[in-house]
């Protein structure tokens, strides 16, 4: 399998604070790649670097073989124009911790928006596809509801449908269940599991160790801006080698 995401020595600083101190990893096409670690470890920042919501300060980041946010010509690096960055992002879906649905649009309009505005799909076409996707996430009956009328779990499932509407080749999940009531987590995880089974490449920042163990193909434990341990989720979670991983897992499991 080829690499969908390839990270080489990625550094990221916010002012004087260095959040990522050299991340090297590879996400294979079709796999579910879980990122775990304590808060402030840089896992969410790294995820946001993948679709260039954050600019990296050093290193190289590739998605599907393409350099993210820059163009390399000889040994010179050129920043991409906003429109070119937008073009790269079309193929990368993202799901946020706080859902970030558009509150002034109904569920189905949320899902239709990007295909119409970005891909130039017709309204009828976009609506039909949006309805399919809402049905897939189990919310066919909520198409006409505004986000404020939906529960957190329903909003997050709409957000997943919205990302899928762009037919991405890669999906990024930034703690998708962290803002949910415990009893609503299961619905969202079910949708994600379903998506994983369909062969979608997924990078998931999560605190759901059960999901990581069950669905994940690879797992990385990050702390202090570096990758501490990585491997098969079942191995890492049941038999962590590193001391830091052990103490983290003993607190969350």
């Amino acid at each position: 399998m080829s690499a969908m995401v390839k990270s080489e020595g990625v550094h990221k600083s916010f002012g004087a604070l260095e959040v990522l101190k050299g991340i090297d990893l590879e996400v294979k096409s079709g796999e579910v790649f879980c990122l775990i670690g304590p808060s402030g470890s840089g896992k969410s920042t790294f995820l946001r670097c993948i679709n260039h919501l954050e600019k990296i300060n050093a290193g190289r980041l590739y998605v599907d073989g393409e350099l993210v946010g820059y163009r390399q010509k000889g040994d010179k690096l050129y920043e991409l124009k906003d429109s070119e960055v937008a073009l790269q992002r079309r193929d990368i879906g993202m799901v946020f911790q706080r859902f970030n649905l558009f509150p002034h649009m109904t569920a189905v309009e949320n899902v239709m928006e990007a295909p119409i505005q970005v891909k130039g799909a017709s309204r009828a076409q976009a609506r039909e596809r949006a309805r399919e996707l809402l049905e897939r996430v189990g919310l066919a009956d909520k198409a006409g509801s505004y986000p404020a009328q939906l529960s957190g779990g329903q909003q997050q499932r709409v957000a997943i449908a919205r990302a899928l509407a762009m037919d991405p080749k890669l999906m990024l999940f930034d703690e998708p269940t962290s803002a949910l009531d415990p009893e609503l987590v299961g619905d969202v995880l079910d949708v994600m599991r379903d998506l994983a089974e369909s062969g979608m490449t997924m990078v998931v920042v999560t605190h759901e160790m059960g999901f990581a163990r069950e669905v994940g193909d690879s797992l990385v434990f990050m702390d202090g801006g570096v990758v501490v341990e990585s491997g098969n989720p079942r191995d890492v979670l049941t038999n962590p080698q590193h001391e830091r991983t052990q103490s983290f897992l003993s607190k969350v499991l």
Binding site: A86, R90, G93, M94, F96, N100, F102, A114, Q117, M166
Partner: peptide
């Protein structure tokens, strides 16, 4: 961010 992430 959500709009940018969708490629808008």
């Amino acid at each position: 961010e959500a709009a940018h992430a969708l490629g808008m």
